[in-house]
Amino acid sequence: MKRILLWWAERALLVLVSVIVLFPIAWMFLTAFKSPRDAYSLSLNFTPTFNNFVTVFSHPWNLGDMVLNSVVVASVTVLIAVPCASLAAYSFSRFRVRGRKFLFFLVLSTQFIPAVVIVLPFFLMFRQLGLLDTRIALIIVNLAIVTPFVIWMIKGYIDAIPTDSEEAAMIDGASRLRVIWDIVLPVAAPGILTSAIFCFILTWNEFLFSLILTRRDAVTLPVGLVNFRTERGDLWELMSAAGVMITVPIFIMALLIQKHFTRGMTAGAVK
């Protein structure tokens, strides 16, 4: 009897947790498909419409530009950060570099630096260089946040690969670079891919830099949300539609690599 009760209590709790997590997301998705009138009515009985999406992508909101900005900034950041970080992570993982501990501490310590500290001087520098409101500016600043994080994460993955195969390859006649190319990269590929997606998510969702460094041309999606606060009040149905556009690509990525994703969260941290 007690057993059965516990069994049901456990299921009930699981359902409750799922509801708490899913409800805000579901509500946003629903609102995105509501007409303005329905959006303010709390009603679940409404005729779905795509009008909100049409509206956000047309003048004056032009969400399409922001989608492009977000895609370019996040992709370029990943394409620069991940290869550089992979090489550094390999060196940290496999060599007893002189001063390695200090260098690695230097990398980790950047994680303790609040973004506001970095963005102030960047704002001043970019202003002088005329780089404010450009994608390049965003990419540079995002690299600051993302690179150390990715080094740390990929190092965790490489640490977990036994060195045997690499040594075997060196004895079989491979140079160190050949070993990295032939053995380490293929074996670490799932980990590197996971790190790349983490990196993409961080950049895609980044808000502070974009808020400060962009005005019109290089605005990314999260900051675009703020535009829907107008003198006429908050336009919730449009915000929700934009929210869906921000969320869907990221959710798909996260779910695609679901297994590695959860492992990635634990891998670096537990050590």
Binding site: S165, M170, I171, D182
Partner: peptide, 20 residues
């Protein structure tokens, strides 16, 4: 000389096979 130039072959305790 690095290992690759020593013309040796080695069998490892954990085999050191290339998993991929």
């Amino acid at each position: 000389k690095p290992p690759k130039d020593r013309d040796i072959a080695m069998v490892f305790q954990n085999y050191g096979l290339y998993p991929h």
